[in-house]
Amino acid sequence: MPRDIVHLALFKEEQLNEAAEAIQVLREMGISDHEISVISGAPLQEKMLGRPMTWTRIPLIGISGALVGFLTALFFNFGTPLLYPIRVGGMAFQTIPTSFVTIFELTMLGLLISTFIGVFVETISPSYGPQGYDERISDGYIGVLFSAPAELDARMHEALTALGAEIVHRAEAKKLWLF
């Protein structure tokens, strides 16, 4: 299958409604949602563009991290004093009140660190869907990236331009990060 060409339809900041409409148009042309991706300079909710909700594992990763932190804290509090029992201040080797502090801190540390790691890993891992970027995005432009078979070019151009889009033909996937 020949590789489809990636297009980028740029809408101005305030042309949000038009962008939503354009996506609708593309969908009607038979371009499925996963062949479309929207890039924007400001956070747009999927609902605004009538797009399917994106799914992320970050909460899951965060909770796993929290669990790891919690278990580490349990080990610190109740395991390490047994590895080397040292009596201090007439306290028991394993004290419950003091353990809550460590448990809390390490759970939170686990949660927050792993949340970040989740973001980091998900961000740098290769994403599906059309690549491509335009620097105007960070000026607030809304970009609809989609790959469409060549035969659709004319129709699509017409429809999108009518909505006020500026079309970038063959949007190139830029090297935006280290690798």
Binding site: S40, E46, E122, Y133, G143
Partner: peptide, 10 residues
């Protein structure tokens, strides 16, 4: 960062 929906959602 490109500003995709997934990125923003994350």
């Amino acid at each position: 960062w490109r500003g995709t929906e997934a990125e923003w959602a994350r």
